[in-house]
Amino acid sequence: MNTSTRSLLLEINSLQTWFDTRAGTVKAVDGVDLTLARGEILGLVGESGSGKSVMGYSIMRLIDLPGRIVGGSIKFYGEGTQNEDLVNATSDRMRRLRGSHIAMIFQDPMMSLNPVLRIDTQMIEAIQAHAKVSNKVARDRARDMLGKVGIPSPEERLQAYPHQFSGGMRQRVAIATAMLNKPELIIADEPTTALDVTVQAQILYEVRKLCRESGTALIWITHDIALISGLADRIAVMYAGRVVETGLVRDVIAAPRHPYTAGLMGSVPSNNPRGKPLRQIPGMTPSLSNLPKGCAFAPRCERATVTCQQVPQESPVGAEHKVRCFHPIESIPAQSRHDRIKV
């Protein structure tokens, strides 16, 4: 899927979101560039704590003090809008966009759910906030959506409270709620971590259907590389507040060019012998309030040289494939690529 030939929905440039803490400024997102076309599915992977959720909150403009967006732009080309920069949008405007045009499925499902309200109340409210429909119509839509995400006995479950659900059921309610108004963009933050493969497949089926039929674009944040390899069109890899590699899924997964991405692939359990210690990337995650100068991965990188004391800029290594690295791993011929991964 080529972003330039499809109509652009989201364009993030040099985004910086920082948190002031007593121990210093945490540069959670520090110069992220990303684009997303209508109907496109982007997989966002990366180190725990590298700024994936904060980037999602930034698009939703849900960053509270002491956090703030200190630089960059988030252009949203939604229906009936032109060249709107969400960084400068009023809070009133954001309230109207959230839920109807842009929805986020939070990593912690309880962030999307009110613990003291029944599920039906919450879902009906979410529908009626953006559409004038009767209670009956809203309720039916809510029930159908619960069924689509694989909640058995949806009619009866509508009357339950969040604490009466299992972890995975809460995740599914949050997914269903985000899909209710067919938004143009859904940011899904690890929405299926507690779901078994069968239910996961059911949800991915519905999600992809929504993308194809309504042109909804998706940013799917996950640690599950097997899942994202089958779902996404493109993939972006984050490390320490920056996107270090982007490209088509098949290119990035079959032949990662950034040393961090390559390290990640090596840690996947199915790429390791059973019962033996799993390969891990050596060293510690850097502290975001005290990043090394230059490339943040340098202290852990076996390819590092003195050049890496500079900040590497994003540079192309193939069609639609870009990395931020001075010494990217050599491309290997397409022929032998398939030997490197287990399919």
Binding site: G150, V197, T198, V199, A201, Q202, L204, Y205, E206, R208, I225, A226, L227, S229, G230, L231, D233, V249, R250, I253, A254, V268, S270, H338, I341, K342, V343
Partner: peptide, 15 residues
């Protein structure tokens, strides 16, 4: 149904 790392988009089947 164990998902494996793929380089092709996968079709997801509903339950």
């Amino acid at each position: 149904e164990i998902p494996r790392i793929a380089t092709q988009p996968r079709e997801f089947v509903p339950i």
